[in-house]
Design a protein around this nucleic acid. Structure first.
Length: 846
DNA sequence: TAGTGGATAGTTTTT
DNA sequence: CTATCCACTA
């Protein structure tokens, strides 16, 4: 498909003429394919043409649809070439989805568009222009872990810890400054030099910036800020991009920070007149932003809600379109969401509505403990699944990552397939970071942090003393730390150490030869996997893991091999991708990017990660004071309001079913504390919630009438205290099990990730009687599955029917008299000792 | 230099 | 509770 010549630049005059002409055809051409099924507001959002457009898109109002059709429309009417479009999304996954949907609408024309996250777009620009400002294009990207490692060294070197500097506080402060586009010089001007703590921070900030630039590296925040600096310092470079991108679209605009805002401003500026061929000035690019201030949940990270609130004032003549009709959820869910968010003052009133009807009621549940709550979630999921809902359409959300423990444990026992999205990410594991450091040392030898990391990993007898000597040598001779390795012989070290250093240095050299991109015309190399393979085998890293006695190292070795297959997969998909390209991609993956829709598992994630996703059934867990309005948010201005938005985001992820759960007591840091229902629960109209067990019921176990939660705040205040045992710390230290008769549960083995209980040899058949630690006695109805995945379906006398993964469930087989068959035959007793003492069932009314 | 054991400190959300 | 740090010993 060739493009019409008439659209070609340079004369802007003629472009303007064409635009009108195109616009007239637009409505006609687009009405068929692209406007189908849109409501009037959506249609307007697709069709509007002007310099600035704000689409205020409530949750589930079809904004992705609008955005993709808007882009497709620009392409279809030939108002823009693909290369003139820049679309910014929040995650790579969203970017991929958007590209896919545009492709579905207009075909392969979509190829040349830039659809990416802020960070990827900036990396792309920075790599292209790096040489202009003292970096080289193979710079590496420091993730927050790398930044912290660097700061740790600096704080230690400066002995700043005695002044109360911690890594995390310093990292946060630097990040904040960078998000405000402050650099060392500008910050220095505002500093009170009389204050020792102030000037110390300045020194740290300066050291940190120097270290980054001498390592030829950027941290996350730099990627944005440095791009802005680049544009400001080099107007001709800015002009290039300003002329190139004619249409800029930004999704999730409410979560942009100041630096990102400034970047958008730079990109939409009228290009400075530089091009002699141009008769008159080119307009600034047209800007479309989509967002919802009610879903702003990243203020803690510098997101500035004013960017969207003041958009109209900011871009004069901006058009605002409001999308309120929701295509995702039932009315009950929306009413709950509306009533919660209405409690945030200073917001523009906006009410989501739908035409699909009320739907099911929201289900509420109050557990006695976090594990009870988790059991409720697992049971409900099982029921949903039996009624035909696929696991992949179900999600469980929580506020903090630590809440996954109880959920995971119960899910494993219940044989529920689940997946944790985010959390400790694959690429954050120590062994992966080690191996990545090898790759970085090859791709960017200036990155001293990476070189230091691998220097003695695996152990080669190079200790801190040797490392310091190398560093001194490097400094004295004005060379990089990497290069100092080449001169190991001149340091007068022992022969063993000298040889170890030289071998490492040679290995890196060899690898970098291998990493060279293939010469012009050569068949594509399979460079990245080859380089990685060489590094992990010759360095001895993989062997060291395999030889290790530590059982966890086996899993680590597997992870390293997994990374090797990741590189192979990467190279298959990107035959011309270089090592640096691979490293970039890895640095910029977000939690939600790991989601795989076809996985067939329940998804567990934090509320933050959940933004932008949707599921048929959603479980919001831990709706408690100090957890949902999180304790840490109380002090911050705007904190509680942001927490409410977080709750709102969670509610609006649900299509059909919404479950709200909480616990009366929650185990945290080893001891148990009392939890109160979240204030936000009362903001939902009582008639929308069907309490299976309300906070009122949960205290008075005997089964009184459900007490409406929403009735009165003080209604449950006093009822919440846990009987007995408020005495404090003696609790955990006594080893717990004998306290089992008391209500709050004692403790559970939290060994989910480590070795599990293992009933591997336990044979069960239909008709057998068993005793379960939590559910009491029951009868086996049937056994399905093979080997380690054998699942028993058990009818318990009082706890109902459950599915249990035999291998790991805390159960014993009983003989005809109701006694455990034999302690020895069930492996877990012998293996685990005190953790598995049978306890009184915490869930049962006693 | 490596490995161990005891003490201690930190506990929100993440591109 | 857990992860990390530090000091001490082999």
């Amino acid at each position: 498909m060739t493009r019409p010549g008439r659209l070609r630049r340079p004369a802007a005059v003629s472009v303007a003429a064409v635009r009108i002409d195109v616009l007239m055809q637009t409505a006609v051409e687009m009405s068929n394919a692209l406007l189908d099924g849109l409501n009037p507001q959506q249609r307007e959002a697709v069709l509007y043409r002007g310099q600035a457009l704000l689409i205020v898109a409530g949750a589930g109002s079809g904004k992705t649809s609008v955005l993709t059709r808007r882009i497709a429309g620009l392409l279809e009417t030939r108002e823009a070439y693909p290369s003139q479009i820049l679309a910014i999304t929040f995650t790579n996954k969203a970017a991929a989805e958007m590209r896919e949907r545009v492709r579905a609408l207009v075909g392969n024309v979509a190829e040349g568009m830039w659809i990416s996250t802020f960070h990827s777009a900036c990396v792309r620009i920075l790599r292209r222009e790096a040489e202009q400002f003292g970096y080289s294009r193979n710079f590496t990207i420091y993730d927050s872990g790398d930044s912290r490692a660097l700061l740790k060294r600096i704080i230690k070197d400066r002995e700043a810890d005695v002044l109360g500097f911690t890594v995390s506080s310093t990292a946060n402060k630097i990040s904040k400054l960078k998000n405000e586009l402050a650099d060392v010089e500008s910050y220095a001007r505002t500093v009170n030099h009389g204050d020792p703590s102030d000037s110390m921070f300045l020194e740290i900030f300066r050291d940190y910036s120097r270290a980054l630039s001498s390592a030829n590296a950027f941290d996350f925040d730099d990627l944005i800020a440095q791009t802005v600096y680049l544009f400001r310092a080099f107007p001709h470079i800015a002009a290039m991009y300003q002329k190139r991108f004619r249409h800029i679209l930004v999704d999730e605009y409410q979560d942009t920070n100041h630096a990102q805002y400034a970047l958008i401003r730079e990109l939409t500026k009228e290009p400075a007149e530089r091009d002699p061929g141009l008769i008159s000035a080119v307009d600034g690019a047209s800007l479309t932003v989509v967002g919802d201030s009610d879903q702003s949940i990243y203020a803690f990270r510098g997101a500035d809600i004013r960017n969207i609130v003041e958009f109209e004032r900011d871009f004069t003549g901006a058009k605002v379109i409001l999308l309120e009709q929701n295509y995702r959820s039932t009315q009950n869910i929306l009413t709950a969401a509306n009533s919660v968010i209405a409690n945030n003052f200073d917001r523009k009133d906006k009410k989501l509505w739908t035409s699909v009807g009320d739907g099911d009621k929201i289900v509420g549940y109050t557990g006695y403990s976090g594990h009870d709550e988790a059991q409720f979630v697992a049971d409900e999921i099982q029921t949903l699944h039996e009624k035909g809902m696929a696991y992949k359409d179900i999600a469980v959300f929580y506020r903090t990552n630590s809440q996954t423990r109880a959920l995971e444990e119960i899910f494993i026992r219940s044989a529920l397939p689940y997946r944790i999205v985010g959390g400790t990410k694959f690429y954050e594991r120590a062994e992966i970071k080690d191996v990545m450091a090898y790759l970085i040392a090859v791709a960017n030898p200036a990155d001293t942090l990476a070189v230091r990391r691998i220097l003695n990993t695996p152990k080669r007898g190079i200790g801190p003393a040797t490392e310091t000597q190398l560093a001194n040598f490097a400094e004295k001779n004005q060379m990089s730390f990497r290069d100092s390795l080449r001169f190991a012989g001149e340091l007068g070290l022992g022969p063993k150490v000298t040889r170890a250093i030289s071998e490492l240095s040679n290995l890196l050299d060899e690898a970098s030869v291998l990493a060279e991109p293939p010469a012009e015309g050569d068949a594509a190399s399979d460079g990245v996997p080859e380089v990685l393979g060489l590094l992990i085998s010759r360095s001895g890293y993989l062997d060291a893991l395999r030889r290790s006695q530590d059982p966890q190292d086996e899993a680590r070795a597997e992870n390293v091999e997994e990374l090797l297959s990741v590189t192979k997969e990467y190279q298959r998909n990107n035959p011309t991708g270089t090592l640096i390209d691979f490293l970039t991609e890895v640095s910029l993956v977000a939690a939600a990017d790991e989601l795989d829709d076809s996985s067939g598992t329940v998804s567990l994630m934090t509320l933050h990660t959940a933004k932008g996703l949707e599921y048929d059934a959603v479980f919001l867990t831990g709706i408690e004071e100090d957890l949902l309005p999180h304790r840490m948010s109380a002090g911050e201005p705007g904190g509680p309001a942001e927490e409410r938005r977080l709750f709102y985001v969670g509610i609006t992820r649900a299509r059909k079913r919404l479950f709200l759960s909480l616990a009366m007591t929650r185990a945290q840091y080893g001891d148990v504390s009392v939890a109160m229902p979240s204030r936000y629960l009362q903001e939902i109209p009582g008639e929308l919630i069907d309490w299976k067990q309300s906070p009122g019921m949960a205290t008075s176990r005997g089964g009184t009438q459900p007490r409406a939660l929403n009735a009165r705040r003080d209604g449950y205040g006093g009822a919440y205290s846990v009987p007995g045992n408020r005495g404090g710390s003696s609790y955990g230290s006594q080893g717990g099990a004998q306290n089992g008769a008391q209500k709050p549960k004692t403790e559970w083995s939290n060994r989910v990730t480590g070795q599990m209980r293992d009933n591997g040899d336990l044979v069960l058949a239909a008709g057998d009687r068993i005793r379960h630690t939590d559910f009491g006695d029951g009868k086996v109805l049937g056994v399905t599955g093979e080997g380690a995945k054998r699942i028993a379906e058990v009818q318990f006398e009082s706890a109902g029917r459950k599915r249990l993964l035999i291998k790991v469930a805390p159960l014993e087989k009983l003989d005809a008299d109701g006694n455990p068959v034999s302690a020895a035959s069930t492996a877990h007793d012998a293996a685990e000792g005190d953790q598995t003492d049978p306890r009184v069932d915490e869930f049962e009314p006693s």
